[in-house]
Amino acid sequence: MIDLIEQAQLLPAFFLTIQLALWSAAFALILGTVIAILRLAPVGVLNALGASYVTLVRNTPLTLIVVACSLVLWGQLGIEPASRRLPDGSGNPDFISSLNFRLGVIGLSIYHAAFVCEAIRSGVNTIPLGQAEAARSIGLTFPQSLREVILPQAFRGAITPLGNVLIALVKNTTVVAAIGVFETAYRMRWIAEFRPADLMPGFALVALGFVILTLPLGLLVSHLSQRLAVKR
């Protein structure tokens, strides 16, 4: 078993999975927040921009987005998020792996930003209209009512859906195996091809790894959402 973990490099693979998830979560959160702001803005054009992004991306398979990032964004349009040369001018030995990693992060971020946007919007939707009306009627200005009344409740309402997006993101990082990032799904394929006798234990280990990654996350999310829930 230990021997299999070492040969299949499962630990580095899970480390890569975690890295993918963290980077994509950060970028998806930024992009998703921007799109949520567009969708919530009181301006028709901005709403339409945000809404069309969400509709287009949510209905496209992640596999397609990730593969297109590699074959179209890089292959056809020549957008290269990694450099071939190190700062001192010598060739970058990690060029291919860091290129694929970053393309994967781009694909995952684009996809999950749409879900982050919807999570934030659902957080805003949990606020009863009366809260805003009350804030106005006691004379708070617009920024004050946002700061003191609306946004604190919106963030708390968004914890559960955002947490669920994060859990889904951790599992969805496996899709970047399609563009040659050596994470867990890639390693699983390696086991199947080079040590077929160990397919069962390999699968058990990988599955266990994901249970270990997602179970605490789920518990944390439901704990946080209960502790921070707005009592109404």
Binding site: L62, F115, N125, T160, P161, N164, A168, N172, S222
Partner: peptide
């Protein structure tokens, strides 16, 4: 929720359905 490969369900009003395993939410 969304354990689903990433899809949040959305209904007609554009609200998002999410995992609400716990009673509070």
């Amino acid at each position: 929720g969304v354990v689903d490969g990433g899809q949040l369900m959305q209904d007609a009003a554009g609200r998002v359905h999410t995992n609400v395993g716990d009673a509070a939410s």
